[in-house]
Structure formats: structure tokens, C-alpha cells
């Protein structure tokens, strides 16, 4: 009775004659220095490459299922990344507002344009003031006519009811609130000034609203990430069901768990990756549609706002996250399913 040595090198050398009668060639091959380990590494790489492409091929082979899955995933991812982009744009908007925090001085009715001009120059010399802009009655009227929608009704008026307005841009923005308040108080005591108004409160409110929405968006995105995980997991469940026989046979001939999982994880990767790209397109197209109206709105406010799209690193992050969610969802699903799956 022959003993079968455990070490594979010798075993290969001796056993090959059993079925193939090519013991010598076999033996030489395994003895070639480095040959075996390099072959194994190559085989391992080939295995991954094969799993990568065959899982893509399998997705292509059942286009209806794949498109359905990817569409659902892409919409979920588009929602999440759309929220992100909206928040990013709002933040930019709020940032611009901060720098334009301004005090509006509505002058008394009796103040003439020249008086107003002199007064504006006087204010301009105040070290706490960066810039003063005078809006004449006519300018105010013209602006009001075009933007209020009451254009025709106002043409009927004989006299211009609007006061001269001075827009004062304080130095130092919002950081020093007390300084702003002091400035406001001095304007209020001036005889020329009817109403002095600091456009600040609503900026603050906007900021707190933004903070809340940011929170809400984060929660929504967590939820959507879970949805992506579940959808990916379910897709893998169906895939595993379809390939049950293959899995059982592979196990019977000695496949490890990681060998069994590999193609499914690659499937998860592909559906996540493709969905991420599709989601990017969905959001970008939507932003392009929105752009026109946003730019129009922005032009009314001195062009201070431009729509932000995904930049390169965000695009990369989006696709990476989508792929990772696909893989993780598949992995979690496999941990449950492969535990249950019985042979036969």
C-alpha cells in the first residue's frame, strides 16, 4: 500500500502517472524555480479577472433584469447625491449672502438727490463702512416696475412715492455683530434717515434652516444608502438562486467560501458602479435643466450665485461609494444566504 504524501509538490509528481502518464514533465514543471508560485499567482489574478468580466457578461446577458435593478439603484443614488448637491448650492448661496450683509437706509421724503449724495459721501468716510451705493428715486421706480409685476399700475401714478435709498455695505461682514448694531444705531439717530434696516435676521434664520436641512438630508441619505444595500442584497439573492446548482457543485468539488462569493461580489460591484455613473448623469441632467432658471434668478441679484455641479473628486466619491454599497450589500446578503444554503 502506497502512502500518499501530503505535500502537493511530491504528490503531483507521483500521482500524475495515475491518470495521465506524464509524471516526468509534471515533475520538472513543479521543480522549475519559482514556477509554481508564479503560476499560482497568475491563476489567482486570472480568477479575479474572469470573475470581474464574467459577472459583467452575466449582467449583459439578462438585460431586462439588469436594467430594472440598475434603474432602481440609480434613482436612489441620484436622490441621495441630488440632496447633497442641493445642500452644497444652498451653502454657497448662504456664504454669498454673508458677505453681502448690508444696511438699507430709507431717507426721509423731503431729502433731495443732491443732499442724499452729500450724505452718502459723508457716510462713506466712516471707517466702519466699506461702500455706499445710492439708489435714486428713478432707479428704484424702474427696478420696481420691472420686477414687481405692477408695472402698468405704477405708470398711472403721477408722482414717485419711493424714497431715496442708500445701501451701506459695512466693513467686516457678519463677524462683529456689535459693531453692526452700533452702526445701525448711529444711522437711526441721523435726521435724514427715515428707516435704517439691517438685513441680518433673515440671514441668521436662513443659516439655521440650512443646518436643519443639512441634518435632514444626512438622514435621508442614510436611509437611501440602506435602500441601496437592500436592493443590492436582494439582487444577489436572486442571482444566487439562479445559480444555485453551480454553487452546490462548486462546493462539492472543494470550493472555498471566498471562491463562491467572488463572482457575486463582483456582480454587486458592477451594479453599484454602473448605478453610480447613471445617477451622476441623472443629477447632472437635472441640474442642467435647472440652470437656466437659476442663472436668471441670480442675474437679478448682481450675478452673485452660480449653480455648482459635481466636481471631479465628488464624482469619484459618488461612483466609489455606489460601488462600495453594491459590494457591501452583496456581501451581507451572502453571509446570510450561504449559511442557509444546504448542499443538495
Amino acid at each position: 500500500m502506497k502512502r500518499i504524501p501530503k505535500r502537493s509538490q511530491t504528490r503531483e509528481g507521483r500521482n500524475s502517472s495515475r491518470y495521465t502518464g506524464v509524471a516526468r514533465a509534471d515533475f520538472k514543471r513543479t521543480l522549475k524555480p519559482g514556477g509554481l508560485i508564479v503560476d499560482k499567482l497568475k491563476a489567482y489574478r486570472d480568477l479575479h479577472a474572469h470573475a470581474l468580466f464574467s459577472s459583467l457578461g452575466r449582467l449583459v446577458a439578462s438585460p431586462f433584469n439588469s436594467i430594472m435593478t440598475i434603474a432602481v439603484l440609480a434613482i436612489a443614488i441620484a436622490l441621495a447625491s441630488g440632496f447633497y448637491l442641493i445642500m452644497k448650492n444652498f451653502n454657497q448661496l448662504a456664504g454669498n449672502l454673508e458677505t453681502t450683509a448690508q444696511i438699507s437706509l430709507f431717507l426721509e421724503d423731503g431729502v433731495s438727490e443732491t443732499e442724499a449724495k452729500h450724505y452718502a459721501e459723508a457716510i462713506g468716510r466712516n471707517p466702519d463702512v466699506r461702500e455706499v451705493k445710492l439708489i435714486s428715486r428713478e432707479q428704484a421706480m424702474a427696478e420696481f416696475k420691472t420686477h414687481s409685476g405692477f408695472g402698468n399700475a405704477i405708470s398711472v401714478l403721477k408722482t414717485n412715492p419711493l424714497p431715496v435709498v442708500l445701501q451701506v455695505l459695512p466693513r467686516g461682514g457678519l463677524e462683529d455683530k456689535q459693531k453692526l448694531e452700533r452702526l445701525l444705531q448711529t444711522f437711526r439717530t441721523e435726521p435724514y434717515v427715515d428707516i435704517a434696516q439691517l438685513d441680518l435676521q433673515w440671514v441668521e434664520r436662513l443659516h439655521s434652516i440650512l443646518a436643519v436641512s443639512q441634518h435632514a438630508a444626512a438622514l435621508m441619505n442614510t436611509l437611501l444608502a440602506c435602500a441601496v444595500l437592500f436592493i443590492a442584497g436582494n439582487t444577489i439573492r436572486l442571482e444566487l438562486h439562479n445559480r444555485r446548482e453551480e454553487v452546490i457543485i462548486a462546493r462539492l468539488v472543494g470550493a472555498t467560501r471566498s471562491f463562491i462569493q467572488r463572482p457575486f461580489l463582483y456582480t454587486g460591484f458592477w451594479i453599484g458602479f454602473i448605478s453610480g455613473i447613471v445617477a451622476w448623469f441623472i443629477v447632472t441632467v437635472m441640474m442642467l435643466i435647472l440652470r437656466q432658471s437659476v442663472e436668471k434668478l441670480s442675474s437679478l441679484y448682481n450675478d452673485f450665485f452660480h449653480l455648482l455641479f459635481f466636481d471631479f473628486s465628488e464624482t469619484l466619491l459618488l461612483i466609489l461609494t455606489a460601488s462600495a454599497l453594491g459590494v457591501v450589500g452583496s456581501w451581507v446578503s451572502l453571509q446570510f444566504l450561504l449559511q442557509e444554503a444546504k448542499l443538495e
Partner: peptide, 24 residues
């Protein structure tokens, strides 16, 4: 070839062994 693929054999080795087994 399945058991050989699973065991991580290289291309040539797989092809050689599969042919030998089928011949047998």
C-alpha cells in the same frame, strides 16, 4: 476543469490535465 480552477491551477496546467482526464 472546475476542480482545477477552484484549486487555483494555471491555464496551461488546467488544459493539460483536463485533456488527460478526458482521454482516460
Amino acid at each position: 476543469a472546475l476542480p482545477l480552477v477552484i484549486a487555483g491551477y494555471g491555464h496551461q496546467e488546467i488544459s493539460r490535465r483536463v485533456r488527460a482526464a478526458l482521454e482516460k
